[in-house]
């Protein structure tokens, strides 16, 4: 990105100290004012110290110039977490009316080895906002490339959601979620994105229109991996605020029954069943029998309500959450079966 004499390793030459560059000869570096007894004192390398001293000089002088822009680039390269430098860089970019596509290249480069840094992503959002809807596809490609390396990168997902809402590009988003879930059905970030798409995409008609097919999709995912918590939470999310629909959809109780009859992890099925019962589900005889057969301690009176029995089973089956299930047991609504 640099047009100055600041050569870097890519060019094979040694970096010329800023103090030896002719274009900086008029600037007096400003050392950091740490006081006589600095604490958490960092033993800065000479290069870092010098770069920051010059940065302080242009920052304090408010210099909006091409060399100031180049300097921020060098300083950011050394410490991309310094938000003051990023902020100043934006002021310079605005003042100089720089080609923002070139700035995007700079961010691409910096982000490629610092993909978990708040400042880069904030800068990227600022940039995309300036570039407008035309930038949407390019931004989606960019987050796609970051997510290809780490499919759960929190910043990348936030950026992607912001771009969708602010600049658009929803057309292939559900397919993209599906593709990521095909790769890794345990990727909770992809499930979260799927929820965002089915509730917020202007093209799909919202949760109400999507619920039915999503329930089928999710149940299929659960049956393939009943120990995968993500789709269980997603399933509950599909009925957020819709208790009646939740209780009247037989697919859910059928799902619980199916999973309970297998020998795989049954904690999540019992947990959903407990929620259904707490919301007023009237359990079938079959459901009661399956749950009863799972009781470890048959000496307990069998007239205990089914929700309490489930809590007891979970206390034994899921010892990490013993305290939680015991608390649930002591807080069951009084009039449930």
């Amino acid at each position: 990105m640099s047009s100055s004499s600041s050569s870097d390793d890519e060019l094979g030459g040694a970096r010329i100290p800023i103090g030896q560059r002719p274009e900086w000869s008029d600037v007096r570096p400003v050392p950091q004012d740490e006081g006589p007894r600095p604490v958490v004192a960092i033993a800065y390398s000479g290069e870092f110290r010098e770069t920051m001293d010059y940065f302080r000089a242009v920052y304090l002088a408010g210099e909006r110039s091409p060399r100031a822009l180049d300097l921020t680039g060098e300083a950011i390269e050394m410490n991309p977490g310094n938000y003051t430098i990023w902020h100043f860089r934006r002021l310079v970019l605005e003042a100089l009316n720089v080609d923002l596509l070139k700035e995007r290249e700079f961010v691409d480069h910096t982000a490629s080895h610092n993909s978990k840094n708040y400042q880069i992503w904030h800068h990227r959002r600022w940039l995309a906002e300036k570039l407008g809807p035309e930038a949407a596809n390019r931004e989606h490609e960019f987050t796609r490339s970051v997510l290809a390396l780490d499919a759960k990168n929190y910043h990348a997902w936030s950026h992607r959601q912001w771009v969708l809402q602010a600049l658009g590009g929803w057309e292939n988003e559900l397919d993209y979620c599906h593709q990521l879930l095909e790769d890794d059905i345990f990727n909770n970030s992809a499930w979260n994105q799927r929820y965002f798409v089915i509730t917020k995409s202007p093209l799909l008609g919202g949760l109400q229109a999507m619920r039915d097919s999503e329930v089928d999709y999710t149940i299929e995912a659960i049956l393939a991996n009943p120990q995968n918590e993500s789709p269980w939470r997603y399933l509950r999310g599909l009925y957020k605020g819709e208790t009646n629909l939740l209780l009247n959809d037989n697919r859910l109780t059928d799902l619980c029954l199916k999973v309970l009859k297998t020998d795989c992890s049954r904690v999540l099925a019992l947990s959903l069943l407990l929620d259904l019962l707490c919301n007023g589900l009237q359990p079938s005889e079959e459901l009661k029998e399956v749950v009863e057969s799972m009781r470890h301690d048959r000496s307990e009176p069998s007239n205990a309500n089914l929700a309490a029995v489930i809590c007891s089973i979970l206390e034994a089956m899921d010892p990490m959450r013993l305290n939680y299930w015991a608390w649930r047991r002591s807080n069951l609504p009084s009039e449930i079966c």
């Binding site: 958490v40 977490g81 310094n82």
Partner: peptide
């Protein structure tokens, strides 16, 4: 030790020094 002096690799936390004070 960290409250007094930190090695050169800590330059990436140069914009987080109050955090270093608090954590320590």
């Amino acid at each position: 030790r960290g409250l007094r002096l930190l090695g050169p690799s800590f330059h990436v936390l140069d914009a987080n020094r109050p955090w270093l004070c608090y954590w320590i």
